[in-house]
Every structure is written in C-alpha cells, then in structure tokens.
C-alpha cells in the first residue's frame, strides 16, 4: 500500500532539484555571457571581431585577432613543452618507478596540481621572466614564451595523471606478448604501450589545452600585456583572458567595450566546452576498446 506521504519520494524529489542545479548554472552562464557579449555584433561584425587586429575601445575598434593569436601561441607553446615531459613522467610512474619513487613523485604531482595559479604567476613573474630574459638575451622576459613555460608547469599534472591512467589500462597481455618476443622495456613502452594508450593520452592533452586557453592569473603577470600582434614566442602579447581581466575595471557597464570583453570570454568558453566534450568522447572510446 502506498502511503499518502511517502518520505522517500519527497527526498527523491528534493534531490532531483539539487541535481539539476549543475545544468541550470551551465545554462545561466551561457545565457549571461551571450547576453553580455552578443550586443557587440550590432556595432561590429563577427569577422571584424575575430580577424581585426585593432583594439581601440575609445574609437570603437574591437579587433581581437591579436588576443586570439597570443592565446593560441601560449597554449601551443605550453603543450609543446609539457607533453614530452608529462608523457615521460607518466611512463615512469606506470612502468619504471620502484615503490619508493612513486611515493615521492605522485604526491609531488598532486601538490603541483593544487598550487593556486596566482602563486605560479608570482613565481613566474620573477623567476621565469628573468630566466627567459637572460637565456635569450631579450629586452624583457615578459613574453609569450614565459607564459608558455608557466602554463606548461600548470598543465603537467593533468597530462601526467591522464596519461598514466591510460598506460596502466593497457591490458597486461600486450606487455607480456612483447616481452615474450625478446623486446626490451623501452621497446615495449614506445612500440606497444604508448601507441595502445594513444587515444587516452590525446584526451589528456586536449583537456590540458583547454585548461591552458582558459587560464588567466598566471598568464597576465608574465606575458607583458602589449596589445599588438605577437610575431613570435619571444614577443610580449596579451591573451583573451588577460585582456578581460585588465580592461573590465575601466569598461562602462553595458557599453560596447563591456560587450566586447564578454565576447573575448565567449571564445575560450566555446573552445573549452568543445575540447571537454572531445576529450571525454575519446576517453570513453578508449575504455571501450579494451573492454
């Protein structure tokens, strides 16, 4: 017999309300960012925004291409630096490391992941910036490269932990098959394990790219913040996120400038959502392959 007042159903209904919160917040974010950004396109065309390279709010010029290029350069630089190191460390943890080494390296990586981005920024502001200045003998170390280096450090934990997971999920059988043919550890690692873990590793790299594109604090402190198209890694620049951070304070609410800054946020937002979907797709596909 069903009771009129069923406690279980009441709790279930309450929890359902809780559980749609994440979806509601996500939709609200989209709504508010679009609402804040889209009015820009009444004044500036989409192509002028994406492709234009003049950003002069006072004159109504909102070409964001230099921010986009800087963000992409910084991200690719970071990936280039951190992927070889990250995969190596993941292989080390999954295959080579004796117990005592794992007990040191793993907590170190967790800690690396837990350090706030602003602290990385302050560290990079002095150490990495001077390192770049001295090494490459440039006028200022506040460059795209400096931002890439600090981002590379920040995304290492993501790359390592996801790569390690996917290497460890490669069936033992493959490994044994390779050893039984007289392969060395290294041959087994680079010819069988890493290729078999490939899709999982790529998923980790994509996730890390998303993190790098969206990062603000560590970048803004070291990239120089010059609103000009960067010509190379040793140029200063300004990324999408740092532009938002630096200009929001001076933008009049609901002005075109304000709208344009929301559009700057829209770019990494869309990219990152896309990457996160792609990455989780790859992960599920990878798991299914070995099931």
């Amino acid at each position: 017999m069903k009771k009129l007042f069923d406690q279980e159903r009441v709790v279930g209904a309450a929890l359902m309300v809780f559980s749609i919160t994440a979806l509601v917040i996500l939709l609200l974010i989209m709504l508010f960012i679009l609402d804040g950004g889209l009015p820009l396109f009444n004044k500036v065309s989409v192509s002028d925004f994406l492709l234009g390279d003049k950003w002069v709010p006072a004159k109504g010029l909102f070409g964001a291409s230099q921010f986009i290029v800087a963000a992409l350069l910084v991200t690719f630089g970071a990936i280039l630096l951190s992927v070889p190191l990250g995969i190596s460390c993941a292989v080390f943890l999954a295959e080579i490391a004796p117990g005592w080494a794992k007990r040191i390296v793993r907590p170190a990586i967790e800690l690396l992941a837990g350090i706030p981005s602003i602290i990385y920024g302050v560290f990079a502001l002095i150490i990495i910036v001077s390192l770049v200045r001295v090494t490459f003998n440039v006028a200022t170390g506040e460059t795209i490269l400096a931002a890439s280096i600090v981002l590379a450090i920040m995304i290492l934990p993501i790359i390592i932990s996801i790569s390690q997971d996917s290497i460890e999920s490669v069936p033992r059988l493959y490994k044994e098959g390779s050893y039984a043919l007289g392969a060395t550890d290294w041959q087994t690692i680079h010819r069988v394990l890493v290729p078999a873990a490939g899709p999982g590793i790529v998923a980790g790299i994509i996730l890390a790219m998303g993190r790098a594109i969206g990062e603000t604090m560590a970048v803004v402190l070291v990239i120089g913040n010059v609103e000009k198209m960067p010509a190379g890694l040793l140029d200063p620049g300004e990324t999408l996120t740092s532009a938002i951070l630096l200009e929001m304070g001076e933008a009049v609410v609901k002005s075109t400038h304000y709208n344009a800054l929301f559009c700057l946020g829209l770019v990494p937002f869309i990219l990152v959502l896309f990457m996160s979907v792609l990455s989780s797709r790859l992960t599920t596909k990878n798991k299914a392959r070995f099931a």
């Binding site: 069936p171 059988l173 050893y179 039984a180 007289g182 069988v192 078999a196």
Partner: peptide
C-alpha cells in the same frame, strides 16, 4: 636474448592493436 630463443604463446590470444 633468452626470450628471443624461447618464445611464448599465451592463454588468451594477445595480438597487439
């Protein structure tokens, strides 16, 4: 070198992907 001389076939077929 030993494993090159003494090969092994396992319980479950394990071709590489």
């Amino acid at each position: 070198a030993l494993r090159k001389r003494v090969g092994m076939v396992f319980q479950r077929p394990n071709p590489f992907p």
